[in-house]
Design a protein around this nucleic acid. Structure first.
Ligand code: ZN
Ligand code: ZN
Ligand code: ZN
Ligand code: ZN
Lengths: 162, 162
DNA sequence: TCATGTTATGTTATATTATAACATTGGAGG
DNA sequence: CCTCCAATGTTATAATATAACATAACATGA
């Protein structure tokens, strides 16, 4: 399998994503157990669907997929599961797309920073200290208490640029 | 009139905002004239409404206000005017609020960076080089071409924290 | 001036995203 | 079994945004 300098950001096309997904769900189960939060079958199923790819998923696409899997589902079904997963830090909301993506490191609390490809929709999640520091410095200078920093960088990923 | 170290970010409550607004519209007119873009009465009216305060405005609130001013208006009326103003860099869209705010420096092309108060909704627009550099550094490391960086920092402004 | 193409606006309908409100289900603990 | 509570089901509707087509305003050259 080929690797490149960029692999630490975007997952290559041929990576073993089934494993990413299994691990993400297993991690979620562990975390929820630790916290006494209930990762019910519905919530687990939504998390699996969100983890379909390293790309944000729309709420109504999740709804369609739940229905395709013979589950009774209406918009609140999906939004409530998403709310739970957001609260637990297991997924992030991508504001600029009204979409949801799995968190790559739910053990550590963090606000997401994202590189999002406009062509293939792939997302790379960052947690860059320099961006964080720079934001904090500006906030401090303004006497501003940061609650939820949102950093979403839209553009073209290296694979799509080729 | 009192001033404080934070004034360069958030406008104080007692600043002369009528003047901000007049200047913003005048600047817009100048810019559009330079570019051969048409700041029609409708577009100018929407820009004035967006500049009501240093806070993001919702599209449907603009719609209501246009109607209150005896103008025939439907959603496309507003969205088309907003699209024009966005293209000209005269306003920014706040993704995390589905709302629109006047740009404080439309002469220079830039992506907005915003501090947004969750309490009073006031917005401070930044164009901080350090944040920009940090973002660019990460993008470069990932082989990513930045097209539209979005930085929206939600929190509590100094006035509301007091 | 008029014909013509182009841009802007009006109009109707509908798509997309999200929440309110209330009913039902199904365990955990007594 | 009963009770409580969290989770889910269900119906309706709110909030945000766009598609598609009609008309009006405007520019520009014949
Ligand atoms: Zn993967
Ligand atoms: Zn994350
Ligand atoms: Zn002002
Ligand atoms: Zn700006």
């Amino acid at each position: 399998m080929q690797t490149s300098a960029h692999d630490q950001y975007f997952r290559s096309d041929d990576h073993n994503h089934a494993r990413c997904r299994r691990e993400a769900v297993a991690t979620a189960a562990t975390l929820c157990a630790q916290r006494g939060a209930r990762l019910t079958p519905l919530r687990r199923q939504v998390l699996e669907l969100v983890w379909a790819r390293h790309a944000p998923v729309l709420a109504y696409d999740l709804l369609d997929q739940l229905r395709a899997r013979q589950r009774r589902a209406a918009p609140p079904t999906v939004y409530r599961a998403l709310d739970f997963l957001l609260e637990q830090g297991l997924i992030h909301r991508i504001e600029s797309m009204n979409a949801y993506v799995g968190c790559v490191d739910p053990f550590v609390e963090h606000a997401g920073q994202f590189l999002i490809c406009n062509r293939c929709r792939s997302v790379a999640e960052l947690d860059d200290a320099e961006i964080g520091e720079a934001v904090k410095a500006q906030a401090t200078a303004a006497g501003f208490q940061v609650m939820r920093p949102t950093v979403e960088i839209r553009g073209i990923c290296s694979a799509c640029a080729r």
